[in-house]
């Protein structure tokens, strides 16, 4: 067994992949190797969390993107010949994974919800969504290594075990890349929080005008949550930034509580909140597809219902 490799750009994502990688390594995958940018924390933390080897990517010049590591990574993986390489399904991770798959002439299972050792000669069997989230696709990879990307927050972070031992090595900077970064823009704080928010109030097409976002915000404030939207609100109406759009190709949220206001429930949107603990919907249309996918529903006008909910929450909160 030649081991499992994981790669992610941020510490929390590395720890999540160590949970999965640890499971697969324990099931017979051998050594667990974590590839991490050197700036992302102390390698000892990754060793404590399950890595047998930490491969650090030395800091890149300002104008170089993470994908510049591609030729180096491809060479390292080829030499180590692991059973599987697991990457966090971030924008960067997904691009690097697909390009690695091309270079290594192997297959990649994208955006996997689960991975397990296979039977019938398949090293691993993965589950992922297809057709906008309407279908669950079970796949296996015929090449080697098995490549897979895993969306953030699919697995809990791996807990530290004191006293674990492992090795650390640092890769020298990669050669110059044809793509040069000329500027970086950080997104607003609120937008960074929606994916991790405990409560999400989401607005859909049922909202009549931009000013009415205020109503959704009041509900979110009353609940201590964040605000999100469906694709038409961000893409067509531009009432909220694109990075608040919840859905298959937008942000995937896993809150304790999701409340959709005037959200009809297109499959691509519902897929973005399938990890929510409790899904609530307020919609005038009793046939809106969000209701069968919700735990609690109110068939009614959001303009009538929302202020009542806010008042009731305030009553409880005193």
């Amino acid at each position: 067994m030649a081991g499992i490799w994981i790669f992610a750009e941020k510490k929390e994502l590395v720890l999540e992949l160590l949970t999965l990688g640890g499971q697969l390594a324990a099931a017979g995958g051998g050594k667990l190797t974590a590839v991490v940018p050197a700036a992302e924390g102390d390698p000892a933390d990754y060793i404590a969390a399950g890595a047998d080897e930490v491969v650090l990517l030395s800091p890149l010049p300002e104008d170089m993107s993470l994908a510049a590591w591609l030729p180096v990574l491809a060479g390292e993986i080829k030499a180590a010949d692991p059973e599987a390489v697991l990457l966090a399904a971030t924008s960067r991770g997904k691009e690097i994974a697909a390009r690695l798959a091309a270079r290594l002439e192997t297959g990649l299972a994208s955006n996997c919800l689960s991975l397990a050792p296979g039977t019938d000669g398949d090293a691993l069997v993965m589950e992922r969504l297809a057709y906008g989230g309407a279908a669950l696709q079970r796949v296996a990879i015929t090449g080697r290594p098995v490549l897979a990307t895993i969306p953030p927050r699919t697995f809990p972070p791996s807990a530290a075990v004191p006293g674990r031992e492992g090795s650390v090595r640092t890769l020298p900077p990669p050669p110059a890349d044809a793509v040069r970064i000329v500027a970086r823009k950080e997104k607003e704080r609120s937008a960074q929080d929606i994916a991790a928010a405990k409560t999400v109030v989401c607005v859909g097409r049922g909202l009549e005008k931009r000013d009415d976002l205020q109503l959704a915000r009041q509900l979110a404030d009353a609940l201590g949550g964040e605000i999100g939207c469906t694709r038409p609100i961000s893409e067509e109406l531009h009432w909220l930034p694109d990075n608040l759009c919840i859905g298959l190709s937008g942000v995937q949220v896993k809150p304790d509580l999701y409340i959709g206001l005037g959200v009809s429930g297109q499959i691509q949107h519902l897929t973005g909140l399938r990890g929510a603990r409790l899904i609530c919907a307020v919609n005038r249309d009793p046939n809106a597809p969000i209701f069968p996918a919700a735990d609690l529903g109110i068939v009614g006008d959001l303009y009538d219902v929302t202020p009542k909910i806010i008042a009731e929450i305030k009553k409880i909160r005193g």
């Binding site: 398949d122 309407a134 499959i267 109110i298």
Partner: peptide, 20 residues
Amino acid sequence: KLKTLAMTAARLERNCELYG
């Protein structure tokens, strides 16, 4: 390089409790 072993309907249904 990738083979589909099965393609089934995803379960999104929950038991929606309706309120007035």
